[in-house]
Amino acid sequence: MKFTINGRSYEAEADIRTSVLDLLREHVGLTGSKKGCDHGQCGACTVLINGRRVNSCLTLAVMHQDDEITTIEGLGTPDDLHPLQAAFVAHDGYQCGYCTPGQICSAVGMLDEAKKGWPSHVSADLEHSDLSDAEISERMSGNICRCAAYPNIVDAIREVAGRAPAGRDVAGADA
């Protein structure tokens, strides 16, 4: 099978049952994408496929031979970090680091969705939604962080989204 990953071409001899995640980790040697549950429940495996965020454990590699796959390694390197990667470091948007590549890939995809005006569960207006803290939290809730760096993750994403810091919206205050 042939793949385009982070702008480079790869060839792999892989079982047709191989997920994109296992392709990356076990065949291509890109272990930045993490396996937390292998069932699409935790988001640690999130990568970008044709620019959209995808749980790479839930989709088979054989289905993505013509797609552009971007992993955390493709966003930036330790010496040349993507703005979101840098913001996660500055805001301590992680602790153990295991969910982090998925969080960051997810955030890249999420910011693009928000830019396109896609609403979320908490959007009051389906046509226009600003990226409030409640929106960021909701849209990032497919990525579990057991170390619970959530407030810091929101801080990091808010900074990159160019929004001024504000108190997080108060839950349950719809009255």
Partner: peptide, 19 residues
């Protein structure tokens, strides 16, 4: 201070047991 291992963690360069 920000974590010294931060750049590795956010770029997928930190190596965990199965990797």
């Amino acid at each position: 201070l920000s974590r010294v291992d931060g750049p590795d963690k956010v770029s997928g360069a930190a190596t965990y047991a199965a990797e």
